[in-house]
Write a protein that binds this DNA or RNA. Structure first.
Lengths: 217, 217
DNA sequence: GTCTATAACTTGATAGAC
DNA sequence: GTCTATCAAGTTATAGAC
């Protein structure tokens, strides 16, 4: 028998991912989890804290993996400067490993993260604390991999990249590329290859400054 | 004095864009619009129909512009085959013209569209009818511009492109590039250039098929 | 067309028995 | 720890006076 706390977290993760935070009521979560309606307040105090708990359960390990992988790539690189492709790989591989592992939320957690990325005002403060250092670290590595991009250009393209990634995680359109695993298991290599190819091409695209072009006309 | 119906639509557009559909109550909309709480049911019958009305008010004109622009580009091309850049331009320019025009919702409507793209289950049937022919038409043009991509690869990259675009419209990070207009007005050319450069590079990126690579190893 | 009043229901959250 | 019962507030939506 699974722990009550985990059953609530599982049901909340699934329903928040499927219908969004605001549209999901605690009663629906309790019903799906098969526990009493009062349990959630006993274990989590409020709906917002429940969302935090859902996220924290998965995010910490993935973020740790991301930082570790990036550090390893930098050690392996001769001058400590890794390519865009490697930075993207270090960020995405832990994510895709989660999607491949039902015990770590599988594709459901990815879908939730993709959704919350759009309802950014929902992301609680604690989660920001959990993600900010990772994002800063990766932004720094990206800047070193792309020295020709100004900080503003880099930030703009990073937003585009995050939006693109969040979209395919949200609508699960990445899953069609991941059927090739042995015994029907999740093989994330084709997805990784496609994402990295697309995103790195975007990061490397020529900078068009139409304003300057207009001035020199 | 503005029409009551329009005041409701304006307030709904703004609040749906800012807080999302589920998290916004009709009472809050009526309060912001400064009209009676019963008006919305008199004019729109229900919350869902109100959302439909908010979208239909803007989408029809923009979609018409998109199709017209694409048709013009195809006529101008020698063999009727336009580049990816031109297809993207035909899709994005009407959008950015809306963002530049406060009378057509300005950046607020773009933000709303970006949000709804994430809560895709909310997009009502009528809106799908309104958008589907446009999307099919553009998919067809994209396929002709990128004959080397399989339909599955093209669809995947189109999702990535939509996600990237929706993200920058949602968080308004595109607005910083649009301050150059005369008298502080919105100049969408720099935004268009940056979006097209990024997205077309993604569409043209090499296709990596790791599965095949593994087989030939 | 605009308003008040209210129906009918759902929401997050709590108190207190067991 | 788990349950029932319930609260107080907020929700969409409607009926009917003016």
């Amino acid at each position: 028998m699974i722990d009550t706390k985990d059953r609530i977290l599982d049901a909340a993760e699934r329903l928040f991912a499927e219908n969004g935070y605001s549209a999901t009521s605690l009663r629906r979560i309790m019903n799906d989890a098969g526990v009493n309606v009062a349990s959630v307040h006993y274990y989590f105090h409020s709906k917002e804290v429940l969302l935090e708990a859902v996220l924290l359960r998965r995010a910490e390990a993935a973020n740790h993996e991301r930082l570790e992988m990036l550090a390893r790539f930098e050690q392996e690189a001769p001058d400590g400067r890794v390519t865009v492709e490697k930075v993207l790989e270090a960020f995405l591989v832990p994510t895709l490993r989660m999607a491949a592992d039902p015990a770590r939320g599988g594709h459901v957690f990815l879908r939730l993260m993709g959704r919350l990325h759009a309802e950014s005002d929902l992301l609680p403060g604690i989660i920001l604390v959990q993600f900010r250092p990772v994002l800063l670290r990766f932004a720094e590595a990206l800047a070193r991999a792309l020295p020709d991009l100004s900080p503003a250009e880099l930030y703009f393209r990073a937003r585009l990249a995050m939006g693109a990634t969040a979209q395919v995680f949200r609508d699960s359109s990445y899953r069609k590329w991941a059927q090739g695993g042995a015994g029907g298991s999740f093989d994330w290599q084709p997805v990784l290859g496609r994402l990295v190819s697309y995103l790195s091409a975007g990061f490397r695209a020529p900078v068009v400054d139409l304003v300057r072009e207009q001035e020199t006309r």
